[in-house]
Design a binder for these strands. Structure first.
Length: 325
DNA sequence: AAACACATCAACCGCCAATGA
DNA sequence: GTCATTGGCGGTTGATGTGTT
């Protein structure tokens, strides 16, 4: 390690050019490199990354060091186990800001933009692909808002009020407690999430510090919990999409009621609630969805095997009925 | 057991805005 | 005011792990 007394934290451009000419390492970081970087930052703090890399004796670009530190080595970085609350928050914030990953990450303490971006691409976009619609399309966004988010809310609620063994498909790794206050509060608590209660649903909501308004997914209004690692419903890092883990028979009625409520209002979907019919007149393959559901459900292995499902069977049935498809 | 397909995620790339000489 | 450098961001890629046939 070579981190001692390198004082030129703003080295000359010529030095930078020279360093750029050196054979720089690329690819995965070694344990030794990690150790070197951690040690250097522990002693000297973060600084100009190019200089830091050089002074620490790392044959890496400043950018590479910065990325490694921010995304992996930083002490407060959290990886894996995207909680349901975090998933919901990601959806909510993405619907608001789009692919502003770093901005979204600011509201999920410990999460990096890279991780959120990866999550979005691997989980969310996958399902957009399954639905044969663009992830940025209005249809897909509305689907998230009026179907997935309420589902997620239901699961969060269920996870908070039921034993882990009944906590849906993620039950095997779900940590549940009904506790809503804690002295060991996680940053995603009242400080940066607040909302109102109408239907006992508990979801996190980001405070963008600009006068929060309450989210309203479908006609489901939200309340924010006191969110802690202890009481959050955590889903394991698994191949399943936690976000769209929607096969959740125990709570299907709520979603049904959402549509029925709107039907009652307007003989169909209200103007305010974008009609899901819109999603399906652009080539979404109901049959494929049903077959996929059947595959999962026929597996008969309990929740996990079909937990990657976008729609529960009843949703599909209902929507088919609703739109005569 | 091997081959293949798919999912995940760490790391890189290119662009751009901010900063400083 | 101009230019070079840096840091930050979003997009993309490739290696690795995992599941399936």
């Amino acid at each position: 390690m070579n981190s001692n007394n390198c004082v030129e934290m703003g080295g000359s451009e010529e030095d930078d050019q020279i360093s750029m000419m050196e054979d720089l390492r690329r690819g995965p970081w070694t344990v030794e490199e990690d150790f070197t970087l951690i040690n250097y930052i522990a002693h000297h703090g973060e600084g100009r990354w190019n200089s830091l890399a050089r002074c620490a004796g790392l044959k890496r670009t400043g950018k590479s060091c910065r990325l490694r530190w921010l995304n992996y080595l930083r002490p407060d970085v959290r990886r894996g186990n995207i909680t349901l609350e975090e998933q919901l928050l990601i959806l909510e914030l993405h619907s608001r800001w789009g692919n502003r990953w770093s901005k979204i990450a600011q509201h999920l303490p410990g999460r990096t933009d890279n991780e959120i971006k990866n999550y979005w691409r691997t989980r969310v976009q996958k399902h957009a692909k399954q639905l044969k619609c663009d992830v940025n399309s209005k249809q897909f966004k509305d689907t998230m808002r009026y179907l997935w988010m309420p589902r997620l809310v239901e699961r969060i609620q269920a996870a908070a009020t039921t034993p882990a063994t009944t906590g849906g498909s993620s039950s095997s790794t779900t940590t549940t407690t009904s506790t809503t206050t804690t002295t060991n509060s996680y940053p995603l608590n009242q400080t940066n999430m607040d909302c109102i209660v109408t239907s006992q649903l508990v979801v996190p909501h980001a405070n963008n510090n600009t006068g929060n308004t309450c989210s309203n997914y479908g006609n489901t209004q939200m309340i924010t919990p006191s969110y802690t690692p202890e009481n959050s419903s955590t889903t394991a890092v698994s191949p399943v999409s936690d976000l769209t883990d929607c096969y959740y028979p125990a709570n299907q009625s709520q979603n049904h009621e959402m549509f029925q409520h709107n039907n009652a209002i307007n003989g169909g979907f209200t103007d305010a609630l974008i009609s899901p019919a819109g999603y399906f007149n652009q080539g979404i393959d109901f049959q494929a969805m049903v077959e996929q559901n059947n595959q999962w459900t026929d597996g008969g292995n309990g929740g996990d095997d079909f937990s990657d499902n976008l729609w529960n069977v009843e949703d599909i049935w209902f929507l088919k009925q609703q739109f005569n498809m």
